[in-house]
Structures are given as structure tokens and as C-alpha cells.
């Protein structure tokens, strides 16, 4: 008996080339990622700075009236949400570790596993360009990371608005929202692009993990203050990708270096010896390099696969 039956029906509607196919890729990518619930665990790392920010928001309600929140118990306290709060949240050590881990977890296998499963042929035999494919993969990593960077930041901003009694609070806080979106994107985008480039080059997911960790780790070590002092060359500090990103985020959020919140979150200016342009150039350079590596590698694979 033949395996076919009469269930095949033609589609009646007019076929048009699809738009925004990469959105479908993001949807499936994110769903697949969170199917393994253990992957939520590193998100705990971003709870610490979030909790500190949250306390800042709720501070006026937690303390008795008339208490000066700026000098409480010898600790520097700050109420409300401003650029410094978001900066502290996005650049705190455990938060950075969460960004790093989610870049690895979400991004390291994205292209490598496609190559292993010969999935590129499936993608490119559909009405999909290399740019669509890249946007789909990049969007997947960014969307995953946004659950631990962008959305908690926006939540702090919203909570601050909702608990504030000042009538004009929305208008004074509104300009902060696009800055938050830009800063959270900047804090994650270079890592997402880098991990995709490494994933495209590596032969296995494990190698991609090692490669990405090595690049981030080595640049951080080489850009260390001590290292720069040893060689008596401050420009070496620009090698540290994390510091450069922090510097740009600092600038985007318009942070004024003041005291820290609870003495935990630091709002001192990173790479203070430089303006923001040199670190920005370094960050953009890394992003362009990552993009170039990805495009060259995936295009080459696509042709060789014939």
C-alpha cells in the first residue's frame, strides 16, 4: 500500500516572498533555549544587582519619614532610579557574569550545531538571505540576554514610576527609557556578535565555548591596569573589551560619578584616562570584526557544501 493518501492540498493564497523571516528564527531559537529549564539558573546572578536597585526604588517606603537616605547608617544610599542605578545594575560583577554565561549558553552552539546538522542547506534553500540568517541568530542571543539585562532594567524604571508620588515623575523619567534600551543593548550586543563569530568558526560547541571565554578572558587580562602600568602604556587598557563596553554604557546613561549604592554598586568612571570615543571605537571595531568573520565563514561553508 502506498504511503501517500489524499491529504495533500494546494495553498490557494498568492505566494509572496516573506518578510522578517528572522523573527520566526528568533521565536524558535528562544523557545528551544528555554526548553531546558536548567538554563534559567545563571539568571540568579542578575538578581543581586536587581535587588539592590529594587531596594533603592522602595527606599522611601522602607525608611521612616525625615530620614536622610543619603547618609544612613554610614552607608551611601540612593533612592529612585536614574542612569547610575541602571549602570550599576548592568555592570555589576555578577550581572556581567550572567551576560557572559548567557552569551555562551545561547550563542556558542547556534551556528556550530547548524553546521553539524547540515541545517544551513535547509535555511538557504528557503527564501532567506545570509543577512536574515544572521539577524535570526543574533536576535536569538540578544532576546535571551534581554531577560537578564534589558527587561529587569525597564522593570526598575517602571517600578520607580509606579511608586513615585511626584506628579511630573513620568516626564522627568521618560528620557531615561531610550537610554536604558540603548545601554542594555550595548552591554550585550558586542558579546552576542562575538560569540556568533566564534560559533561560526569553531568545529564544535565546546571549542566555541573555549574560544569565546579565551577571547574575553585574555583581553581582560591584557587590558588590566597592572599590565598597562608594567609596560607604562595606558592605551593597553583599551584591549579590555568589558571595560570599553562599560565606558560606553557609562556615557550612554549619562552617569555622574557619585557615591555607590549601599557601598556595593560602583559608579566610578571606567577608563577615566580616556574619553568615550576611543573605547567606542574599540567596541565598534570588535563588532565589525565579528560580523566580517561570521559572513566570510558562513558564506564559505555554504559554497564548499556543494
Amino acid at each position: 500500500m502506498p504511503i501517500y493518501d489524499q491529504s495533500y492540498r494546494h495553498i490557494d493564497s498568492v505566494k509572496q516572498p516573506p518578510r522578517f523571516v528572522w523573527l520566526a528564527m528568533i521565536g524558535v531559537g528562544v523557545r528551544l533555549f528555554f526548553r531546558d529549564k536548567r538554563r534559567l539558573f545563571p539568571g540568579v546572578l542578575s538578581l543581586i544587582p536587581f535587588a539592590v536597585g529594587l531596594i533603592g526604588v522602595l527606599l522611601p517606603f522602607l525608611l521612616p519619614q525625615g530620614v536622610n537616605t543619603n547618609e544612613f547608617g554610614g552607608l551611601a544610599l540612593k533612592s529612585g532610579v536614574d542612569g547610575s542605578t541602571i549602570y550599576s545594575f548592568l555592570t555589576f560583577h555578577t550581572e556581567w557574569l550572567a551576560i557572559f554565561l548567557y552569551a555562551l549558553l545561547a550563542g556558542a552552539g547556534l551556528v556550530t550545531n547548524d553546521l553539524k546538522a547540515n541545517a544551513l542547506e535547509l535555511y538557504f534553500s528557503r527564501p532567506l538571505t545570509l543577512t536574515d540568517y544572521y539577524l535570526g541568530k543574533l536576535g536569538t542571543v540578544l532576546w535571551v540576554m534581554s531577560f537578564f539585562t534589558l527587561w529587569p532594567s525597564v522593570l526598575l524604571w517602571v517600578l520607580d514610576l509606579s511608586v513615585s508620588s511626584a506628579p511630573d515623575r513620568l516626564w522627568t523619567q521618560l528620557p531615561l527609557l531610550p537610554r536604558i534600551v540603548a545601554a542594555a543593548s550595548l552591554a550585550t550586543l558586542p558579546y552576542a556578535m562575538l560569540v556568533l563569530a566564534v560559533s561560526a568558526v569553531a568545529r564544535s560547541q565546546r571549542l566555541a565555548v573555549v574560544g569565546f571565554a579565551a577571547i574575553v578572558g585574555v583581553t581582560q587580562i591584557l587590558g588590566n591596569d597592572d599590565f598597562a602600568a608594567m609596560f607604562e602604556n595606558d592605551a593597553l587598557q583599551l584591549i579590555a573589551l568589558r571595560d570599553c563596553i562599560d565606558r560606553v554604557v557609562f556615557e550612554v546613561l549619562g552617569v555622574v560619578p557619585t557615591g555607590s549604592t549601599f557601598g556595593i554598586l560602583d559608579t566610578s568612571e571606567p577608563l577615566s584616562a580616556f574619553g568615550w570615543t576611543a573605547p567606542a571605537v574599540v567596541v565598534v571595531g570588535w563588532m565589525l570584526l565579528s560580523l566580517l568573520v561570521f559572513y566570510r565563514r558562513v558564506r564559505a561553508i555554504e559554497i564548499v557544501a556543494t
Partner: peptide, 13 residues
């Protein structure tokens, strides 16, 4: 429609 020669699928689906 294109059915490639090599075994190919999206892992996990």
C-alpha cells in the same frame, strides 16, 4: 522545494 542530499535537520525539534 528542495530536499538536500545530506541528512539535515534542526536539532531539538
Amino acid at each position: 522545494g528542495y530536499m538536500p542530499e545530506r541528512e539535515c535537520h534542526i536539532p531539538g525539534l
